[in-house]
C-alpha cells in the first residue's frame, strides 16, 4: 500500500492524491499507513484530540456527584458511566496516536490551553438532576453528532466511534430513566429536574457548533467524509427527537418559539445565544479555568508516579537483558535456539 509523502515526486504525489480521492469517493476507509494529505491528517488530529479531551474533561462535572449519589444503585450507574468516559478518552487518544502524535503531547496541549474540548463541560452541575439531564440532553446531542462519525472516512476513528456510540446511547437511556424516576417522586424533585432542563437546553443546542454559514471548516470536512451532516441539520434532528421525549417526561423546554411546523414537517425553534457560545469557547465560560486547572493538577500530581513506572520498567528491562546474556553464556553448549534463555535451564 501507499506510504508517506517523503521523497515522492510530483507525479507520484498526483497518483497518491488520486488514490486517496478514489477511496473517499467510494466510501472506503483510509487507514493509518495509507497516504493522506497533510491537511486531512491535521484536521483529524485536531478533531480526535478535541473529542478525547472532551471525554476526559467531561468526567469532571458528573464525577463530582459519584460520592454524593443518593442511592447505591445510582452511585454504581454513575461510577460506571464516568469510568466509560475515561475508556472513551483512551480509545480516542489511541486513534489519534495512529496519526503520529502522542498522548502525552496532546495532554500537554490541553492543559496549556492550546487545544479545546466541548464547551458544554464549562457549565456547572448544580444538583443531582443535572446528572440525569446531562445523560438525556448532552449525551443525546453527542450521539446525534457522533453516530454519523461511525462512517467517518478514517478507519480507527470510525471503529472507535462504533463502540463509543453504543455506550453513549446506554448512558443516555440511564439519564432519561433517572429523570423519569425523579419526576414520579416529590414536588421538590420535579422542580430540580425542570431547573436542570432550563439550564442545559440551550448549551445542548450549542453542542452542534455555530450555524452553517459561520462554520468555515465544515465544508472541507464534509468533502473528506470526516463529517457527514451540517451543524444545522444535526441540531434540527436533535430538536425533533427531543421534543416528544420532553413531553413524555413532563418537562417544558425553555424556548417560547419552539413549535411544530406542519409545512416543514419539523419543529421551528429559537436561536441560541451565539455570543455566549463564543465567550465559552474563548475561555470565559463559568467553569473553564476550574476544569483545566483540575486536569493540570491531576497530571502534575501524578508526574512522580509516571516517572517511577518508567524507571522501574527500565530497570526491569536491564535485569532481563542481563539475565538473558547470562543465560546465553551458560547455554553455549546447548542447542543454540534458546534466545530467551529458557532452554539453558
Amino acid at each position: 500500500m501507499t506510504q508517506t509523502t517523503t521523497a515522492a515526486g510530483p507525479e507520484a504525489q498526483d497518483r497518491l492524491q488520486a488514490h486517496f480521492d478514489g477511496v473517499i469517493a467510494h466510501d472506503r476507509r483510509i487507514e493509518p499507513r495509507d497516504w493522506m494529505p497533510d491537511a486531512y491528517r491535521g484536521t483529524l488530529v485536531r478533531q480526535i484530540a478535541q473529542h478525547a479531551h472532551s471525554e476526559i474533561i467531561g468526567m469532571q462535572p458528573e464525577g463530582a456527584w459519584i460520592t454524593r449519589a443518593p442511592s447505591l444503585r445510582r452511585k454504581a450507574i454513575l461510577f460506571a458511566k464516568v469510568q466509560d468516559e475515561a475508556g472513551h478518552g483512551l480509545y480516542l487518544y489511541a486513534a489519534a496516536e495512529t496519526l503520529g502524535v502522542d498522548r502525552a503531547d496532546l495532554t500537554r496541549r490541553l492543559i496549556e490551553g492550546r487545544q479545546k474540548y466541548s464547551s458544554i463541560f464549562n457549565y456547572p452541575t448544580l444538583s443531582f438532576a443535572d446528572v440525569g439531564v446531562i445523560g438525556w440532553l448532552v449525551d443525546g446531542a453527542a450521539i446525534c453528532n457522533q453516530v454519523p462519525l461511525c462512517r467517518s472516512s478514517f478507519g480507527p476513528y470510525a471503529r472507535a466511534m462504533v463502540r463509543i456510540c453504543k455506550e453513549e446511547s446506554f448512558h443516555q437511556r440511564q439519564g432519561y430513566e433517572l429523570l423519569l424516576t425523579m419526576m414520579r417522586g416529590t414536588a421538590a424533585q420535579r422542580a430540580m429536574v425542570q431547573d436542570a432542563v432550563d439550564r442545559w437546553w440551550w448549551p445542548s443546542l450549542m453542542m452542534f457548533g455555530p450555524p452553517d454559514e459561520a462554520s468555515p471548516n465544515s465544508a472541507r470536512s464534509m468533502g473528506w467524509k470526516i463529517k457527514r451532516h451540517s451543524n444545522d441539520e444535526l441540531r434540527q434532528r436533535f430538536v425533533d427527537m427531543t421534543v416528544p421525549q420532553a413531553e413524555k417526561l413532563g418537562v417544558t423546554l425553555p424556548d417560547p418559539e419552539l413549535r411544530w411546523n406542519p409545512e416543514r414537517g419539523r419543529h421551528d425553534f429559537g436561536t441560541p445565544d451565539w455570543d455566549e457560545l463564543k465567550r465559552v469557547i474563548s475561555g470565559n465560560g463559568p467553569c473553564n479555568e476550574e476544569r483545566v486547572e483540575r486536569r493540570r493538577r491531576a497530571h502534575e500530581d501524578g508526574a512522580w508516579v509516571r516517572r517511577a513506572a518508567a524507571a522501574h520498567a527500565k530497570k526491569q528491562a536491564a535485569r532481563q537483558e542481563a539475565a538473558r546474556e547470562a543465560g546465553q553464556d551458560a547455554g553455549h553448549t546447548g542447542t543454540g535456539s534458546g534466545a530467551d534463555g529458557r532452554e539453558t535451564r
Binding site: M59, L72, F79, A80, V82, Q83, A298, D301, G302
Partner: peptide
Amino acid sequence: AEWCTRAPELEEEVALANIGLDLL
C-alpha cells in the same frame, strides 16, 4: 471514588473505578 479525575494516568482512572465498582 474520590480518586476519580485525579488519578496519575488514564489507565489508573479506569482501574481504580473498576475496583471501586467491584467493592460497591
